[in-house]
Design a protein around this nucleic acid. Structure first.
Lengths: 182, 182
DNA sequence: TCGCCAAGTCAACGAGTGTTTATGTGACAT
DNA sequence: ATGTCACATAAACACTCGTTGACTTGGCGA
């Protein structure tokens, strides 16, 4: 095992990715400048273009990471487990979900965003065990997704008492929505 | 009745307001430039500063209009009426709700935004007739609001089948959420 | 009819944007 | 110890942003 190098391309790349995810999720794409990201990461601005080609490239890389993480999370179990998992995602990694709502104007990124959202809703519908062919069920599953996203937004906006609600309260509300819709 | 004047300050002011509402709601605050708004309104850019003092002033004016309209809409009746009213708002004036989610970075506007959202949730809770002192009820009411906002976002993003769902389908799903939570 | 003032136009400003280019520099292989 | 090259930096680029001031023009009152 080598001691951490002072000049490590992979490490600084990761620093940029982490900083960008936080900034993009918090302030949105256009409101975040590459200088903001570089400053938060503690590296030089030019490295963004070097490692990610462009600001859009950096955003796509952030999105790719989020999509990968979401693909790994399993949607299984009854409504109670599903609700608990959702509430956990809110307190653990709210940035992941927020990022899916940030529009960049880039065509490719927008398609990834939409496909990911649709995929989550579809997995929700099938996990619920209800007939996925029923169109009303699809709408209901996307309603559940809408609820989860709306909660993330309102919490990040600082709306009380939602933003300080503990995990049990979130789980209870989520469970009611899920059982009612799926 | 006078013929419409070619140079009408009030009329051009309204043109700017309408264009700004559309643009801000669709693309967000920072992603929308004053030149975009002026072009869509068909007027000169300098008139924004003249009539609204600044871009922030124009945004505040848009927000004020939305808040006024929302204050006039009544939240009364049973879950079915509430659900129908919500579904109607989505097909009629989605921009109004979207605008409440657009952050401008301006302190005053942000406070108006948050206060309005909290007020809607509170009115939802009291309209449901349940005990508003129960903290879990407050969270549930804000969950209903979160669902409504999430649906607006997903619809504006073009997520199928949600964005092409008709009013009856939306009403049915909203009703399930409302009865489950309130 | 004509002067006046509100309504609208135009060009420019400084600040901030994303990106690139030339230059520096630290750490490993020899 | 030193040469070398990937890693990093700083300065500058061209461009867009919001805003401002001087200018023009249209339409109503006298």
């Amino acid at each position: 095992m080598t001691t951490p190098r002072r000049r490590d391309a992979a490490a600084t790349r990761q620093l940029l990715l982490d900083a960008a995810r936080r900034r993009f999720a918090a302030d949105g794409y256009t409101a975040t400048s590459v200088r903001d990201i570089a400053a938060e990461a503690g590296v030089n601005v030019a490295l963004i273009s070097r490692y990610f080609e462009s600001k859009e490239g950096l955003f796509r890389a952030c999105l790719r990471g989020t999509v990968d993480e979401l693909k790994q999370t399993a949607f299984e179990g009854g409504p109670r487990e599903l609700a608990a998992r959702m509430a956990g995602a809110h307190s653990k990694a709210p940035n992941q979900l927020l990022l899916l709502l940030r529009s960049s104007g880039d065509e490719a990124a927008e398609r990834i965003r939409l496909d990911t959202l649709a995929s989550i809703a579809a997995r929700l519908a099938t996990a619920a065990g209800t007939n996925p062919e029923n169109p009303q069920i699809s709408v209901n599953a996307q309603f559940v997704l809408a609820t989860a996203l709306g909660v993330v937004i309102l919490r990040s906006a600082g709306l009380e008492p939602l933003s300080t609600a503990d995990q049990d309260q979130l789980t209870a509300s989520f469970e009611k929505v899920i059982t009612a819709l799926l």
